[in-house]
Amino acid sequence: MQMMAGLTAGDGRERGHASSGAALDLLRIVRINEEIKRVVSVAFKINIMALNAIFLAKRAGNAALGFGVLSNELRVFSKDLRESMMTLTRLIHESVAEVSVILQESRQDELFRRTAALRPDDRQLAVVLDRRDRRHAEREERIAVLRRELRMAVDDAARLVELGGVLAKSAKIEAAYGAGFATSLGQVSGEFDGIVEEIRASLDKLRHSSFFGGSA
C-alpha cells in the first residue's frame, strides 16, 4: 500500500510530526509533574518544620521573638506554596488530557491519511479531513494557552520561593540573637534555607523545561 501518495485534502496534515511532538510533550509534562510532586512534598516538610520552630521560639521566649514571627511567615509561605503547586497540578492534568487526545487523534489521522492516499478524490473524505484539521488546530491552541498559563504559574511559584528565601535568611540572622537557643535556632533556620534552595532548584528546572522552549 502506497503511503501518503496523492494526498490532496489539506496540507496542514503533518501529523506524523504532530504525533511525535505530542508524545514528547507528554513526556515533558510527566517530568514537570514529577518535579511538582517533589516540591509539594518539600513544602509539606516546611510546614512541619515551621510548626516545630514556632514551639522552639516560644520556649526561647523574648530572645526569639523575631524568629517566632519569621517561623509563622514560613508556615504561611508553605501553605501558599502548596496552593501554588495545586494550581500547577491542575494545569498539568488539563495539559495531559489535551495532549493525550492529540496523540489518540494523530493515530486516527494517520489512518485517514492512508485512506486519502487510496482515494485522493473522495469529497466526503476531504470534508472529514478538513473537520479534523480544524479540531486539531483548536486543540493545539488550547495546549498553547495551557502552556502559557503553566509558565505563568511556575513564574508565580518562583517569586513566592524568592520570598521564602528571604524569610529563611532572615530567620538565620534572628537565630543569632537567640541567646541560649541560638544553636538550635541556627540549626532550624539552616534547614529552612536548605529546603528553600531545594525548591528553588526544582522551580529553576521547571522554568527551563523544554515544554516551555527551554533545554531541560
Partner: peptide
Amino acid sequence: GSEIFPAVFSALSSEFDPS
C-alpha cells in the same frame, strides 16, 4: 480493525456512499 480501515473504506466507497 482500525489498521485495515483504509482498505475497507476504499473498497466500500467504490461500491456505496459511506454517508
